[in-house]
């Protein structure tokens, strides 16, 4: 089954065209990595897939359902954005509890406690999020995004602000939590993105400039191509 089907997605912000006829298919259980420089439309794409933004043209189906008229569908989506979605004035546990209850989980308390230990923040669970370091925040952000155990996980530039070490730890964490989830991850960094990818898409000026066909035939070549593109600013077909 396709977890994501997107056809001819368009998004305009006034006169600025952020997405141009983007068509995507992601089978359930696979992970798609979307590369692109800043301003390529990666965040716009994630927001549309997350049902936070309505496309100006085209349509999206998630697990065969229409996100525009299906509130309950959001139960299947987890999102990690540029922002943590955490309240600095609540404790780590309260943040998870709030999310778990808003998702209507029957055993919200148990789930929150389980997750907070899973990401290694058990001892800090009663501390205000305000006091957390960058790395701890990142882990809590992931825990919060996974609190309802969503089969689809959307990550928008999750490596931003992480140093090499923290990024490696983060990749490990993602690998652990991945299971049979469908993942869409955006990044502008080839080395971090390729680790998780089953398939890749390169987005340039809102349009799909490259799409891997059957698996990743030649990661190295694609990496070269993309690096060259970022360096010169011009996409060579």
């Amino acid at each position: 089954m396709q977890a994501i089907e997107a056809r001819g997605l368009e998004k305009a912000f006034g006169p600025v065209q952020a997405l141009r006829r983007v068509t995507l298919d992601v089978p359930a259980g696979e992970s798609l990595v979307v590369f692109g420089p800043n301003g390529a439309g990666k965040t716009t794409l994630i927001k549309i897939l997350a049902t936070l933004m309505r496309p100006s043209g085209g349509w999206v189906r998630l697990f065969g359902r229409d996100p525009q008229r299906d509130d309950d569908l959001r139960r299947l989506i987890g999102v990690v954005s540029h922002h943590s979605y955490l309240y600095a004035g609540l404790t780590a546990l309260e943040n998870l509890l709030f999310a778990a209850r808003m998702y209507g989980l029957p055993d919200a308390g148990a789930r929150a406690a389980e997750l907070i230990h899973a990401v290694g923040l058990g001892l800090r669970r009663h501390d205000l999020v305000r006091t957390f370091s960058r790395g701890m925040l990142q882990r809590l952000t992931i825990a919060r995004a996974l609190v309802h155990n969503p089969p689809l996980l959307l990550l928008d530039e999750p490596y931003t602000g992480l140093d090499r070490h923290a990024a490696a730890l983060f990749t490990d964490l993602l690998e652990q939590l991945r299971g049979d989830r469908t993942i869409v991850l955006t990044t502008h960094s080839i080395e971090q993105g390729l680790v998780l990818a089953d398939r890749i898409v390169i987005l340039v000026d809102g349009a799909v400039a490259y799409e891997s066909r059957d698996g990743l035939e030649d990661q190295h070549a694609v990496g070269q191509l993309y690096t060259e593109f970022v360096r010169t600013g011009a996409w060579v077909h």
């Binding site: 509130d71 959001r74 955490l86 808003m102």
Partner: peptide, 19 residues
């Protein structure tokens, strides 16, 4: 203001309840 810093309004809109 307390929703804005970490875009928590987005998070609230992601919950499966009527927005």
């Amino acid at each position: 203001v307390l929703e804005r810093d970490q875009q928590c309004l987005e998070a609230l809109r992601l919950f499966p309840t009527d927005r």
